[in-house]
Amino acid sequence: MKDAKNRFGRWPEIRELGFWNFVIQYGVGGWSFRVAKRFPLIVLPVLFVLTWSVKETLLVMFACLVTLPIGGLVWGALFWLFIDHRYKKYVRHQSST
């Protein structure tokens, strides 16, 4: 069986930095910015062609700037809870054997 360093990579080090640091760095900074870079390339041209309205296109773009960071907070929190649960379970199992 792999040890925790191989199985969880850098998770023990990341975990030491704390929940909010992870959520901001990997959730908002990672997930939402990656999605925000690709979203306009895919959706906005289609939206502009369908609506032919610059006003509505800009409104959707503004809404995305607000909602994508919120999605990043949710993604970061859920990912933290999922990985941390698995890590704690693994550590408990290793200490009991």
Rank of each mutant, 00 (worst) to 15 (best):
H85K: 13
G72R: 08
R92I: 02
R34G: 15
G29L: 04
V66G: 12
R34N: 14
K89C: 07
V49D: 13
L44F: 10
V74M: 05
H85N: 13
I14R: 06
M61H: 07
L65H: 10
R7K: 14
M61Y: 06
S96F: 09
Y87C: 07
E13Y: 00
V60T: 09
D84Y: 04
A77N: 02
E56R: 10
K2P: 06
P12N: 06
R34C: 09
V35P: 01
T67G: 10
A36F: 13
A36E: 10
F48E: 08
D84L: 08
G76P: 02
A4Q: 14
W20N: 06
R86N: 12
M1R: 15
A77F: 01
R7V: 01
L65I: 03
V46Y: 15
W75Q: 11
K37G: 11
G76I: 01
G76A: 03
F22I: 00
F62Q: 06
E16I: 00
L41Y: 09
H93W: 11
W20K: 02
V74D: 01
W11Q: 07
L44A: 00
F8I: 09
L59R: 02
S53V: 05
Y90D: 13
I70W: 06
M61P: 00
V46S: 07
M1V: 15
T97I: 11
R38G: 15
W80N: 06
I70Q: 08
I24Q: 08
V91S: 06
F82Q: 13
K88E: 15
K37L: 13
S32N: 06
Y90N: 03
A63G: 11
V28Y: 07
G9K: 14
V74T: 05
G76L: 03
Q25N: 09
S53M: 04
T51L: 07
L47S: 08
V60A: 06
T57E: 09
L58P: 01
I83A: 04
M61Q: 08
R38Q: 11
E56L: 14
F48Y: 15
H93L: 11
P45C: 10
L50K: 12
P40M: 01
L50P: 01
R34T: 09
V49F: 13
G72W: 01
F19W: 05
S96C: 07
T57M: 10
R92D: 11
G29D: 03
W11D: 01
R15E: 00
W31H: 10
G72L: 03
E13T: 03
F82P: 00
Y87S: 05
I42M: 14
G72E: 01
V35F: 12
Q94F: 03
N6V: 02
V54T: 10
Y87G: 06
K5Q: 12
I42S: 13
L17T: 09
P40N: 02
W80H: 07
F62G: 08
V28C: 04
V35I: 15
V49S: 14
T51S: 15
S32G: 03
I83D: 04
K55C: 01
V28W: 03
F48H: 13
M61E: 04
N21F: 14
